[in-house]
Design a protein around this nucleic acid. Structure first.
Lengths: 131, 131
DNA sequence: CAAAAATGTTAGTCACGCCTAACTATGATA
DNA sequence: TATCATAGTTAGGCGTGACTAACATTTTTG
């Protein structure tokens, strides 16, 4: 179950999570704006997410994360945050570029490497946060 | 000029560089074997590489890197090696996984972050090599 | 509450990157 | 040198993920 997600599907999930947390209902248009893509692309992606049980959406309705979708999107975001923190605080990459690189690396890096990065951050005082 | 290369094109370049260095003439079949894909996919990719001036190949002939292709493939491989070294020696990721992750990250990471990684390695005694 | 604006979907297209099947060319060898 | 194995290409197909144009549905508002 829960076969691995493509990069773009992970991006949709992450965007939907962020929008969900703003408290507002999540619309196709919002997702499209956030990701900088056209609305029909979102409609299509939402169908995929629905098929995988990650979101619910009635025709013309709002988008909601399922329990599974919430888990997955949180997982993706954790990777993102860990990577960005590592790039910024350990390597000294500037904020903007760290954000961009984290966005890309999060989709391809292994769980093992992520764990090692977390371990590195935990025993490193330059990084304030704990994971 | 030299617009950015897709992940798969970078993989082909890297494979062709490695085969070139073995001294043997580089054939479509060799590239296909090395990358674990079908021959027609290589034929097609080689056409793209030709169109971009990165390799030369006469019909049914061997594949040669141009000067530009040599530069580009060396650039890609340097990223790969730096990343693998970093993952292994700094983060302690095991050899096999470091190789896999380096393969993937090399295609998406920014020049700035690469530079920071090189800088990190240079002032770190656990990593023996210099870049 | 009817018209207009905003939102969402469908239909059709395209580029990429892979595949298999079938064909063509090359080169080794009997 | 004729044959046969090997190598390379062409043709056609498929999935992903984007796009635009056109249409359908809500929602807002005059």
């Amino acid at each position: 179950m829960s076969q691995s997600l493509s990069s773009s599907i992970e991006d949709y999930l992450e965007a939907i999570l962020a929008l969900t947390e703003s408290g507002e209902p999540v619309r196709v248009t919002d997702v499209a704006k956030k990701l900088g893509i056209a609305k029909p692309s979102v409609t299509e992606a939402v169908r995929t997410l629905r098929d995988r049980g990650l979101v619910t959406q009635k025709p013309y309705g709002r988008i909601f994360l399922t329990a599974e979708g919430l888990m997955q999107s949180a997982r993706v975001r954790k990777r993102h945050v860990v990577l960005r923190t590592f790039l910024q605080d350990v390597l000294g990459v500037n904020e903007e570029q760290a954000e961009i690189d984290a966005c890309r690396i999060e989709h391809v890096v292994s769980t093992e490497t992520m764990d090692k990065i977390v371990a590195f951050l935990e025993q490193d005082q330059t990084a304030g946060q704990q994971f």
